[in-house]
Write a protein that binds this DNA or RNA. Sequence first.
DNA 1: CGCCGATCCGTGAACGTTCACGAGGGGACC
DNA 2: GGTCCCCTCGTGAACGTTCACGGATCGGCG
Lengths: 336, 336
Amino acid sequence: MPGREQIKAGRATIHDVAALAGVSRQTVSRAINDKDEIDPETKERVLQAARTLGYRPSRFARGLRRRGAVTVGLVISHLTNPYFPEVAAGVLEVAKERGWQVIVAESHGSADAEIEALDTLSHQVDAIVGYFDSGDELLAEHLTGLPLVLLERGPDQTRFGSVGIDVTDGMRQAVAHLVAQGHERIGMLDGAPADNPSLRRLAFLDQIHAHNLPVDKGWVAWSSHDVAGGEVAMAELLDAHPDLTAVVGFNDLIAVGAIRTAQQRGLRVPDDIAVIGFDGLTLGELITPTLTSVRIDKGQVGRLAVDQVARMLAGQDPPTSDGAWVRPDLVVRASA
Amino acid sequence: MPGREQIKAGRATIHDVAALAGVSRQTVSRAINDKDEIDPETKERVLQAARTLGYRPSRFARGLRRRGAVTVGLVISHLTNPYFPEVAAGVLEVAKERGWQVIVAESHGSADAEIEALDTLSHQVDAIVGYFDSGDELLAEHLTGLPLVLLERGPDQTRFGSVGIDVTDGMRQAVAHLVAQGHERIGMLDGAPADNPSLRRLAFLDQIHAHNLPVDKGWVAWSSHDVAGGEVAMAELLDAHPDLTAVVGFNDLIAVGAIRTAQQRGLRVPDDIAVIGFDGLTLGELITPTLTSVRIDKGQVGRLAVDQVARMLAGQDPPTSDGAWVRPDLVVRASA
DNA sequence: CGCCGATCCGTGAACGTTCACGAGGGGACC
DNA sequence: GGTCCCCTCGTGAACGTTCACGGATCGGCG
């Protein structure tokens, strides 16, 4: 039944190539994957046939027989926040070393999108890494037993893998620095609301208490995670508490917004008000004044996450140790 | 042979679940994909069995039967250059709408890594989108007939899909603006060497000629694509040509570096020397002085690229029109 | 001339899932 | 009581590839 291959709707298969080249499937397979049990002349003929048919092996059929093609899903909230691409770069780096693929999804910080990403990824990948706000129960429900590594979650976390940031230590360094500069009235711009505070806010409040500083819950404002949010939140904070002399940002973008608002109001940074960020983006070196910040090795976060995935994939032991940790360090620049 | 499933090394299969639940494969399939031809009670029992066995359907076997699970590969050079995450965001956005997955790979601007990414991606995805420096021949060779959409390549490009930037128009706006400000001696910091100039350099030189401005090939220096590169290249350019009054950067990062070098030398921007970037990063609003730049809708580049992929995947027509184009616009801020 | 090894190639089976089809049982309706 | 239909469930086949094995051919050597 010649010509039948031409009529087929889908792509060319290995059978079509075999038929055109006048050999068997196995010989085509040998030519494509260049095994050695094949005559060079035959091999060339087969490759030519494959070329004319536009043949490409099905990754599904191939993956079914061959094992070990690992794909991991990476869920990040905002691709346009420079923080996350740096984490992603770390993930890609280690994944590449291992020959793994990485599928990226963006959640935009939305709980729905987060779960949706989980649902679609869960039957496309072998493990998932990412930033999630949802509770463990909900995550497990949409995971179907898939290995998951949570990024920058609390220490109460135990049923999944995790890579944590030692925010307590980071905040300790930040507040200690401000105190050493003589600051007493210190505010914060958190990235989360008061009724569901971030770990950074809690660590901040702990440090304030540890230093016996005056404290007021009103000294913490809630900001979205970008520069514009920092601008708005800083304006509110300054309106309510004009006597603050220092402010800590949930992240660098918010801190940059804080500086901008301060400057627009004629306040000098750091003389009138000191600002300190949390991230250590390279962006901080470019603005004026340069941003003092608690620097996180963002690439390391990504790298450790993939290491955890590897461990969970190898022995399918539930998270052995209680995750990996990254210790931040304070970079003192000009803003505080 | 009871207990045999327990001994198996690999993951649990649908057979194992069927055996444990005392039903057939098909019934398990119905429960998993919640079809309706199943008794609710049976369904619950099957799901319970699946849970205890930690069963997850093989994406390979599933993909073999079901058609239409599209995965596209995205190759970008530097994840840490804010430009590319914005393009990626556009790609992810449209991909999500279509229910496609996106595998991301980083080439670091290396020709080898670029080809390597192509090799590994080519049998993991259904189409590839990205930034490539290699020649068409080389690309085609490592592509095996896979649809490819080139980002920001020259207009001579025809055998693949492409999304282009109208750099000529962008440079026209930039140079016209500088000329209107009275500038005559204008230099450029290109991101590519003189023997393989970028499209932006060529467009720049065209505009210089069009305005009958004095020109000298020494007025263009070669920079790496980051801030540090811009600093170094600007230093070299100013050393060689202290009489320049304006400089155009290949991208915003390089332009920022140029501003920093100028300021370190005590030059006022834009009074002593004007600097104009090419990208329109939001970063440009944060530095002082704010960066005048030729803004590119980066998200649009990514979105159009996925549209092209869809078109190439649907009708497998070779690139019909000569690609899509994005027209940049000049954002005048403080640096020029 | 017969045996043996090397080289090249083909045939069934298997990977794990879904599709097409059909079987069995039970209730409703004539 | 028989027929028909609906609901639930199971069986063979197929998706496209690779693996394990075996067969064929050819040259060399005793």
